Simulated assay, not measured.
Amino acid sequence: MRRAALPFLACAVLAGVLTGCGGEAPEPGPVETDVPESLRVNLPAATPAPAEEAAIGTPLQERVATIGLLNKRNNVSQDLEMSPGETRRVGPVVIRLQSCERTAPWEMPQETGAFVQVMVQESNSDQFRSVFSGWLFKNSPSLNVVEHPIYDVWVKDCAMDFPGEEAEA
């Protein structure tokens, strides 16, 4: 009869240790690391837009996209604020933002999108594998999906202004 109680007692002790004796474990913070030199891209300097296009909205270099990154294994998510041409590494994931756009307030339907490239480091090596390259859309996330078993990447926002928007707000 004593042998039957031992596994139950061991499970109870292990559960107490894992939960910190009733207290909640602190939430781990995401850690950003350096982008490997092989993945850095020297993007050509942006060519100036014609005068008609420059007046339509915020220039590409001044836009800021908010990209969501979720690690499905440990349920840690974070928001990355990036400018076009910027590359960020978070753990084994490298995200490169090439562009972000949103429709003007007077256009329907309202849409927000970003051209993103996602690379993931192969386990136990220094090699990175490209898992996605394309446009992601906020309002239609299933239209183009980052297919990876551990990481999920999506667009949350593209901060840019249009002329006349201040008057509407």
Rank of each mutant, 00 (worst) to 15 (best):
N144T: 12
G134K: 11
F162N: 04
E53Q: 11
N139Q: 12
L43K: 10
L69T: 12
M82C: 08
V116T: 02
A49C: 05
P7T: 04
E111G: 00
C21L: 12
N42M: 12
V93L: 08
G57T: 09
V153E: 01
S77L: 08
P48Q: 03
G16S: 09
V13C: 13
F115E: 06
I150L: 02
P84I: 10
N42T: 13
A169Q: 04
V13I: 14
W154F: 15
A46H: 14
L136H: 13
A45Y: 12
A51V: 01
S125R: 06
T66C: 15
R96V: 10
A55G: 07
R3H: 04
G23L: 15
P30E: 09
V116D: 03
R73H: 03
S77C: 07
T19K: 05
P84R: 03
A10E: 01
F128W: 08
E111H: 04
S133A: 13
G20A: 13
M160I: 00
E53H: 03
E27T: 14
C158K: 05
N42H: 11
P109S: 06
L136S: 10
S77A: 14
G22K: 12
V153N: 01
S123D: 04
L14T: 10
A5K: 13
I150S: 07
S123T: 07
V93P: 02
F8R: 07
Q78R: 12
E107F: 11
Y151N: 05
M160T: 02
D157H: 11
Q121V: 05
S99E: 05
V146G: 03
L14D: 11
A51W: 00
V155D: 08
V64I: 14
P7I: 01
A15C: 10
A12D: 02
M1I: 13
S77Y: 15
V93E: 07
R3D: 09
R3G: 03
V146T: 10
W106Q: 05
E168R: 07
F128D: 07
L69V: 14
L60H: 12
E107M: 11
V153Q: 01
L6A: 01
S142L: 10
A12M: 08
W154L: 09
Q110E: 00
P84H: 04
R40I: 03
Q121W: 01
G29P: 02
P92I: 07
P36D: 04
E147H: 09
S142P: 01
G134L: 15
E122Q: 05
E32A: 13
V155P: 05
P44Q: 11
Q127W: 07
